[in-house]
Design a protein around this nucleic acid. Structure first.
Lengths: 227, 227
DNA sequence: TATAATAAATGTAAAAAATACATTTATTAT
DNA sequence: ATAATAAATGTATTTTTTACATTTATTATA
């Protein structure tokens, strides 16, 4: 067998963690406490261990940095340029994750010296991590057309205006509130509650919950979730 | 640093090569001439060398098995279950490729002991290769809505009925010939030639070519290519 | 040379979905 | 009682999708 067939790689995972807060999409960035690149900003990652799969490694990393176990996570793609990491011959499998930002999580990530950055305003990150973020943003725009990923980023109870702002942030364009509401309600994918959120208006906006059962039905058909 | 951070992997690429011939989507399957799994059927793959990226490795493999240099190839996903390969701790990055089947290629793949199988009728392959194929088929159905991948699979000159048959094979459903033609011509993505193909009818069908320039325009906008 | 056979090519009406657009409503604070 | 604020609502128009049947160009053969 060819000698080239015997080369071995370090394998890493990097997690591109998105959240939505204050009407803005945000990225979780880590301030590295250890070498290499101590003091630089990076995505959250880890080497993959021999005894785990890539997806297990990504779950482990997410648990460690956010405390969350059931996070929406998808593989983005692998990054393997020969000179991508000056220290190791290392392939990284990037994953993007969508989480609900809340105080519990924010306390945890503060301990870890991680921080949220608006996606409009992402700082320089180590290695090819900025490229990963850009690729992940593109991917999310794509899949938002087919999967109701918006719901992964909002709290369990949310208002229609909140949901609209989120989609405006993902698509980076304004949406008409009448048409947005009409489409979402027509999809029948959210359930109206008998409660209002009054944090952003005097009138208050009705709270809704995501209808998981209905979404499962959609997945069978090839439904166009595009907003 | 954690000792677990020092584990190393073999990294492989596997290529899920699709073609279209005789009105059917086909998969290129390789009859392994060497151990491990000598005599079994598998996808076409290779270990990734230290001096190349994953995508370079996939191009190398495709060149070797098909003689083609400019093949439409996309990364599908990584496969890394701990026990996926009994011989090695090996991560494989699967790629799917779309090629135009012709006599030149068929001669080459015959030499390599590879063979086309109808996708309705794929044999048992080694390791997790059947899973890769199923995942790739799903992915192709998805992206066919947005990218004119159909053109990668047809010869340079093709007829509208041929193109329709291809989309019927990808989507696995019948399409209305009037509506299909209307949509395709409206997209203005194919150029009519002054030649006919008379292999499948007495009247003959006009040949067309893909309009690459027009497609580039589409990519800028977020165009729905869905048929 | 007329006719039969074959798949290619064509058009239109109806239904569904997307878009554009302005006013009223519920509530709180003054 | 009033002003201020964001939430909620409806309709007409345009665009897109769908459903559906006949004519046309060509070859083979009677």
């Amino acid at each position: 067998m060819d000698i080239y067939n015997k080369d071995k790689f370090y394998v890493a995972v990097d997690c591109i963690i998105f959240g939505f807060d204050d009407g803005e999409m945000k990225l979780l960035v880590f301030n590295r406490k250890i070498d290499p690149f101590k003091g630089s900003l990076s995505l959250i990652g880890s080497f993959v261990r021999i005894g785990e799969s890539v997806s297990e490694a990504s779950k482990r990393v997410l648990k460690e940095f956010t405390g969350l176990e059931d996070v929406y996570t998808k593989e983005l793609k692998s990054y393997s340029s020969v000179d991508r990491d000056p220290g190791y011959r290392c392939l990284s499998v990037a994953h993007y994750a969508l989480i609900r930002i809340d105080d519990t999580i924010n306390m945890l990530i503060e301990e870890k010296e991680a921080e949220w950055y608006k996606i409009e305003n992402i700082p320089a990150l180590i290695l090819d991590h900025n490229e990963m973020v850009m690729d992940a943003l593109k991917r999310i725009q794509q899949i938002a057309r087919y999967e109701p990923i918006g719901f992964e980023l909002l709290p369990n109870k949310f208002t229609i205006p909140q949901l609209q702002k989120l989609y405006e942030a993902i698509y980076r364009r304004k949406l008409d509130p009448r048409n947005f509401r009409k489409k979402i309600l027509f999809l029948d994918i959210i359930i109206k509650l008998n409660e209002k959120d009054k944090t952003s208006s005097k009138k208050g906006a009705f709270l809704y919950q995501f209808n998981h059962a209905k979404y499962k039905e959609f997945q069978q058909l090839r439904f166009n979730f595009e907003i």
